[in-house]
Amino acid sequence: MYTLLKQIARSGIVTDVEVQVDDALRVTKQGLDDAILRRFGRSLSIRHVDAGSCNGCELEIHMAQTAHYNVEGLGIKFVASPRHADMLLVTGPVSRHMEVALKRTYEATPDPKLVVAIGDCGCTGGVFGESYASCGRVSNVIPVDVAVPGCPPTPEAIMQGILTAITRERTIG
């Protein structure tokens, strides 16, 4: 136990990433009113759905939850059931074999809800595109609020996408 505590003390606090909102990631105009956004902003629950990724995006979603990025420090946590979630974080092109599961997960998520598509595949279908086996991008199957490109996107970019979805859009000009 002593070595464990010593290791914690020696490691210190390593969080070193600050994330800013990026309106360019929005797919649709922010439709939620200020009161709801303020609530989400303080405590957001996310359900991740892998709809057919290569598993690269998952590696970075895991990483966002580690000490260097500390997404939980922003009041954001990952939950086990869509029924507990405010947001779906969806990776992958949607494989046709995951189409029904993704739609059902979306329906099981209570309103108001947000969807963030993660990665080049989630944004456009990526290298997999559309075919007999792939529906392509996430917005071909469920409505998407924010899409984060990258292959895979960095943990910062993923966090930026999440924050953008729960922030009021800045009016231009």
Binding site: R96, H97, A101, S131, Y132, A133
Partner: peptide, 10 residues
Amino acid sequence: GYKHKGIEKL
């Protein structure tokens, strides 16, 4: 088989 994306055909 849920993630079958048709890689070989593609």
